[in-house]
Design a protein around this nucleic acid. Structure first.
Length: 182
DNA sequence: GCCAACGTTGGC
DNA sequence: GCCAACGTTGGC
């Protein structure tokens, strides 16, 4: 592929994650995983939220931001993962109900997510709205995921620091199967 | 534009 | 509490 003027095409659309930003077949659904520390916001908190829905704000990593802003589409299915806890695990399923829009917490001086470098006229950070679909029958722990060779390539495993990651459809199906008790 | 220093995330 | 993996920052 010859080098090409970059105008009009953001780098992340051509990088290692290009496929998750690629145009979709009609009606194609894609899959994702988001992390949350349960002491901050747990899956049960989402189930109890008004409309079982929340703004997924506070993400301050540019790769994760790209997934939120440009990757996720309405109707996409999302694993809700508990991090920084024992055991860290996929707890439930939620759904994208609103596509990427500017993260207002970045402009709120009182917010712990305030970022004085984000300009409201050209926002740096984005969020989506997520709605709980259901809790998994049994959580699928990171340990179990790492034990499963079919999941060795999961972004969750490969890039442990990323708080929003793509999930391949076969990985999604594998974890759903594991959550039913094998 | 390079790269070392530093800060953050998150598993263990 | 430690450490690996990254992202960001700042000196040059």
């Amino acid at each position: 592929m010859p080098a090409r003027k970059s105008s009009g095409t953001a780098p992340h659309r051509e990088g290692p994650w290009a496929e998750v930003f690629a145009p979709r077949a009609k009606g194609e659904k894609r899959y994702w995983l988001v992390k949350s520390e349960p002491e901050t916001f747990s899956f049960d908190d989402l189930m109890a939220a008004p409309g079982k829905t929340t703004e997924w704000n506070g993400v301050r990593n540019s790769a994760a931001r790209n997934f939120l802003r440009d990757g996720m589409k309405k109707g996409d299915q999302v694993f809700f993962y508990h991090s920084m806890t024992n055991p860290s695990a996929v707890m439930g399923i939620c759904e994208v109900v609103r596509e990427g829009y500017p993260d207002s917490s970045a402009f709120d001086r009182r917010s712990e997510y305030y970022d004085d470098k984000s300009d409201p006229a050209a926002p740096t950070w984005f969020m989506v709205d997520l709605k709980a679909v259901k809790k998994l029958k049994s959580p699928v722990s990171l340990h179990a995921i790492k034990q499963n060779p079919a999941l060795a390539e999961m972004a969750l495993v490969r890039i442990s620091r990323l708080s929003v990651t793509p999930v391949r459809s076969q990985e999604w199906d594998e974890i759903i199967a594991m959550s039913a008790g094998g």
